[in-house]
Amino acid sequence: MLRIGICDDECYARDALRLELEKLLEETEEIVYEFSGGETAVSWLKKHPGEIDLLFLDVEMKGVNGIRTAEQIREFDTRIQIVFVTGFRDFVFEGYRVQAVDYLVKPVDADRLSSVLSRVRRQLEQVRQKQFVFQNGDGVYRLYQDEIQYFYSEKRKVVAVTREKELSFYAKLDEVEARVGKTFVRIHQRYLVNADAVSYIGASSVRIGSEELPISRALKQDAVAALAKAMIGGDLS
């Protein structure tokens, strides 16, 4: 599933790009949001992390231009794919500073647009193998597994803990463990930890950030061995 945003301060330019995209999008892909300026795009993306995979960003916008908009987005989101749309080739090299995927020159050529979409799809397919997707009452979330420090169970819910937030969803911890793979280690009936996030292994607990999480007796031997291997650079797989 490819979720797309378009940012251009000219309505006719947004319409033209949307029409070309709609001819090329696959069944599960959609244009999620259209922005009329860089300030609006930055504000929305901050409040909706991970909801857009690909942003088509006009360079020559009034107010905050596309290059500056991309710089501001990169301050809080290094994952979103950005493709610049421009009427002038002179801006092309500026895109490398903000890790742009590519650029399109107006009017957008259909074959070139198709090529860019294919490349983004391939890149995102590789990335999604490292994502954890879940749904709760607020919507659908996609977290990169390396951002998740640990999961814990709470009654009928599981809580995903990152450095910035905690997000809960209905599931069993056993189900989560099966999905995330061996990078995560079960240390307790209620705790599943990211081995890369563990900074210290004690006799009966592990430390992640400033938190101490308990290791159960039943799981101690296997958990400590797996975590110690990860901490010294071993391969958990």
Rank of each mutant, 00 (worst) to 15 (best):
Q135R: 14
V133M: 03
E154F: 04
Q149H: 14
Q149T: 10
Y141I: 11
D146F: 10
V140H: 14
Y150P: 02
E154P: 05
Q145N: 13
L124H: 04
R142P: 01
Y152S: 05
E125N: 14
D138H: 12
Q129A: 02
K157C: 05
Q131L: 02
I148G: 09
Q123G: 15
K130M: 08
V140L: 13
Q123W: 04
N136S: 04
E154W: 02
G137Y: 01
A160T: 01
Q129C: 03
D138R: 11
L143V: 15
V140Q: 13
Y152A: 04
S153F: 01
V127A: 12
Y152M: 06
K130R: 15
I148L: 14
V159K: 00
Q131K: 05
Y152P: 00
V158M: 05
K155E: 02
R156C: 06
V127C: 06
Q126N: 11
Q126C: 08
R142A: 11
Q145I: 10
E125G: 13
Q126G: 14
F132C: 00
I148H: 08
Y152C: 08
E154A: 10
V159S: 02
Q135I: 05
K155H: 05
Q131R: 08
V140R: 15
G139S: 11
V127Q: 07
S153N: 03
Q129N: 05
L124A: 03
K157Y: 13
I148Q: 11
G137S: 06
R122H: 10
R122F: 05
K157Q: 10
D138V: 08
V140D: 04
V159E: 00
Y150T: 04
N136R: 03
L143S: 14
V140F: 12
D146T: 15
L143Y: 14
D146S: 15
